[in-house]
Design a binder for these strands. Structure first.
Length: 235
DNA sequence: TCATTAAATTGTT
DNA sequence: AACAATTTAATGA
């Protein structure tokens, strides 16, 4: 099991292709972008590795370049509740990084992933200098709040079909995860871990959703055909 | 590049 | 939880 400490040691600079999937780089001015790229480091995470844990101090702002992550929080009663998955292009921890506090949730890799990190000092420098970056972070914070509230409902939802549908809709949030197209590489097992259901129930739900025309199930992933239907549960 | 084999993923009980 | 069927990835000629 690797922690932030070991993650920090296995870092390397990013390739051009990896830089391409970082959405907020596009909103920076050339000099801002140069400074950000210079500081960006990437690291590998095995399935099950924690990127960050509740209570740890924030040293980096993290984003997913490739793979799949799970975002969860420990409830007051000790229960673990999953907010959402994080697909490639997703960045997280800005709320805690802003206030230089400790993480309030856990981020765990669902499969082998590549995680990019921007040092918190650079994060704050960008906040102080870049209008575009501020706009990005603000939108991100606002959207994350909405997602958090939605997650509470999803957790209480009885119907597994609708539960899976809403979780998928959250994954395809165009504001939080802009790079994502209509296809998502996620196995049914990974989705099961994410929504907290058994794999066979997820399989059944996906089959139903596919029959309704909301998605198309493919080997090792799925394609969203009707995002609105997933969100509302109206098929 | 193609055929063979191993591993991963899915659909079903 | 276990099984068989299917798809992809890896290997080596």
């Amino acid at each position: 099991m690797s922690t932030e400490a070991s993650l920090l040691q296995r870092r390397r600079p990013l390739t051009a292709a990896e830089l391409g999937v970082i959405p907020w780089l596009k909103v920076l001015l050339p000099d801002e972008r140069e400074r950000a790229v210079e500081d960006l480091k990437i690291t590998d995470a095995k399935a099950g590795d924690f990127i960050c844990r509740t209570g740890r101090p924030v040293t980096y702002w993290f984003g997913l370049v490739d793979g799949l992550l799970k975002m969860s929080a420990d409830n007051v009663d000790g229960q673990t509740m999953t907010f959402t998955g994080v697909p490639p292009g997703g960045w997280f921890g800005e709320g805690t990084a802003l206030k230089r506090e400790a993480y309030r949730y856990n981020i765990q890799a669902l499969r082998k992933s590549m995680v990019a990190g921007l040092h918190i000092d650079t994060f704050h420098w960008l906040l102080d200098h870049s209008i575009g970056f501020n706009r990005f972070v603000m939108r991100q914070l606002n959207e994350r709040l909405g997602q958090f509230i939605a997650a509470r409902e999803i957790d209480r939802m009885g119907n597994p079909n609708i539960r899976v549908a809403r979780s998928l809709a959250a994954l395809f949030n165009p504001v939080l995860y802009p790079g994502l197209g209509t296809v998502l590489r996620i196995t049914q097992q990974e989705l099961a871990y994410l929504v907290g259901l058994s794999r066979q129930r997820v399989n059944e739900a996906l089959t139903t959703l596919a029959a309704e025309g909301a998605i198309a199930v493919e080997y090792g992933g799925l394609r969203v055909l009707n995002l609105q239907a997933l969100r509302t549960g109206m098929f």
